[in-house]
Amino acid sequence: MRLAEIHIHPLKSCRANLVEQALVEPMGLQHDRRWMLGDGAGGFLTGRQHPRMVLIEVAADAVGATFRAPGMPDLRVEVAELGERESVKVWRSQFDARAGQVEADFWFSDYLGTNCRLHYVGPETTRRTNAVPEVPVGFADGYPLLLIGTASLADLNGRLERPVTMRHFRPNLVVETAVPYEEDGWSRIRVGEVLFENVKPCGRCIFTTVDPETAELDPARQPLETLNGYRIGEQGTEFGINLVARGLGTVRVGDAVVPGG
């Protein structure tokens, strides 16, 4: 098996960046979900409530990020220009993140038509994963990385009238597999030089029904409705596996993938 694709989402719910290689850090892939939109009251915004977020493109680097969205001028934000840390919440996790650039808040508010506040979290994050409390995590829903096998998507598409893409499921690592859902049984996996641990299956939600190219919700709630018919487990509707890294290094498209490490 080999690593087929690497996806990075610098802003929570933004359009994925497909890259040829990525640095694996304790918080996951470098630049992945380090930025997030808040509602100004400590809550967070995602494509579940605001599907147009999936059309936002982000180019992140060591000192900041450039944001692009349909009908909007480019927005450049430098981490050094952000204000002090303030309390934010992602599901049940309460922790501090940087914020404070008024121009960015107005830019996102204009684009989405709702009150927005841009937040950034770096390696100083105090947030930790639930199952592996020593592992730091940024603005991901619960765990730093998500992996899906290509055979799993092919099996799902064989059940759908209209096939979907990997972008519907927002993975970080896509592995070329021959058997559908074989990734579910991997306790550990080595990708290139980095060892990962399978923490739990990934529970799926309504966000999977948002078309990543058009930002439109599928009126038939696909592919979620089909998954509901045959992929129910302890985490609800499951598709893909959540990972934590057990080492640092670089992963590259084409790297050998070895279950068990």
Rank of each mutant, 00 (worst) to 15 (best):
E183F: 02
K200G: 06
C202M: 09
C205S: 04
L173F: 13
R190Q: 13
E182I: 00
G192F: 04
D184I: 01
T177R: 01
P201W: 07
D184R: 01
F207L: 14
P201D: 12
L173R: 03
E197I: 04
V194H: 04
Y181K: 05
V174L: 03
V191H: 09
E197K: 09
V199F: 07
E213T: 10
G203Q: 10
I206G: 13
E183V: 02
A178Y: 00
T208F: 04
D211K: 03
D211W: 02
V199W: 07
D184Y: 00
G203W: 03
T208A: 09
E182M: 00
G192H: 06
P201T: 04
G185C: 08
W186G: 09
T209K: 07
G185D: 15
R190E: 10
E213A: 14
V175W: 02
T209E: 12
A178P: 08
D211G: 02
G203R: 05
E213C: 11
I206V: 13
R204Q: 06
P201N: 10
P180Y: 00
Y181V: 03
V194M: 08
F196M: 05
R204D: 07
L173Q: 11
P212W: 01
V179N: 01
E183P: 12
C205P: 07
P180N: 01
G185M: 04
V174F: 02
E183C: 04
V174D: 08
F196N: 08
V174H: 02
R204P: 14
S187N: 11
P212L: 03
T209Q: 06
D184G: 02
G203I: 07
C205E: 09
C205Q: 06
E182N: 00
E213Q: 15
E213M: 11
E182F: 00
F207M: 15
E182W: 00
K200F: 04
V194R: 02
S187H: 10
T177D: 01
E193R: 14
R190W: 02
Y181H: 14
E213G: 10
I206E: 15
T209V: 06
F207E: 15
L173H: 09
E197L: 12
R188Q: 14
T177P: 07
G192W: 03
I189E: 10
V199I: 13
V194K: 05
C205R: 03
P201V: 07
V199L: 12
Y181S: 08
G185H: 05
P212V: 02
R190D: 08
K200R: 13
F207K: 09
P180R: 00
K200N: 14
R204A: 05
D211Y: 02
V210C: 06
N198Y: 10
P201K: 07
R190K: 11
V174R: 05
V194P: 10
V194Y: 03
P180C: 01
L173D: 15
G203P: 14
C202V: 09
I189M: 13
I189N: 07
E213N: 13
A178V: 02
R190V: 04
F196T: 06
I189V: 15
D184T: 01
K200E: 15
E193P: 15
E197D: 14
E213F: 11
K200L: 13
V179M: 01
L195S: 12
L173V: 14
Y181W: 14
Y181C: 05
E176N: 12
E197H: 09
F207G: 10
R204K: 05
E213R: 09
